[in-house]
């Protein structure tokens, strides 16, 4: 009788241990799932903010292509009206946080994309370096950058790099 009771106690205790383990496991999984969900929600808010900021990017890029053509047209045909249309487009871009990338002296792959290199005949090019450092830069020609397609940033991020022709 006592043996049977002891056996029952052992069985019940084992069952309790198993249930407790299972409970722990389920509770932990549930906590993890909740934590994952809350973190996901936080990340989603950040992603949504980013998405809203750049929601117009695809349309802006298409508009920029039209502006490219308009710029080419104004170079070919001098017309005040056309210039005004172009200015209106440029103002529109500014309102949406889109800025044209200025092309400065040095090529910068963060802002520029090189599409071709033109090597000028020696008499056309200038040679960099002064008398003091000539030995270090023998024959190294100074590079000039020519913008072949304008680049733009949106809220400070490059959405289209400036296409550059490098003239050596």
């Amino acid at each position: 009788m006592a043996e049977e009771q002891n056996q029952n106690i052992t069985n019940n205790s084992e069952e309790l241990d198993r249930c407790q383990q299972e409970r722990e496991e389920y509770l932990n999984n549930w906590k993890k799932e909740r934590a994952d969900f809350l973190n996901y929600k936080k990340d989603e808010v950040k992603r949504l903010e980013e998405f809203v900021r750049f929601a117009n990017e695809a349309v802006i890029l298409e508009v920029i292509e039209v502006i490219d053509d308009l710029e080419r047209a104004t170079k070919e045909v001098k017309n005040e009206g056309l210039d005004q249309v172009l200015k209106k487009f440029q103002d529109l871009l500014k309102r949406y946080g889109v800025e044209r990338i200025e092309v400065k002296d040095a090529f910068d792959p963060l802002l520029h994309e090189a599409v071709t290199t033109e090597i000028l005949a020696p008499e056309q090019s200038t040679v960099r370096g002064t008398a003091q450092n000539e030995s270090e830069n023998v024959g190294e020609k100074e590079e000039k950058l020519e913008e072949v397609r304008a680049g733009y940033t949106m809220h400070g991020q490059v959405i289209r790099p400036t296409r550059i022709k490098i003239i050596k």
């Binding site: 090529f107 792959p109 963060l110 520029h112 994309e113 090189a114 599409v115 071709t116 290199t117 790099p161 490098i166």
Partner: peptide
């Protein structure tokens, strides 16, 4: 992408 942009030069 920055490496790709300067590849031509």
């Amino acid at each position: 992408v920055t490496a790709k942009r300067q590849a031509v030069t």
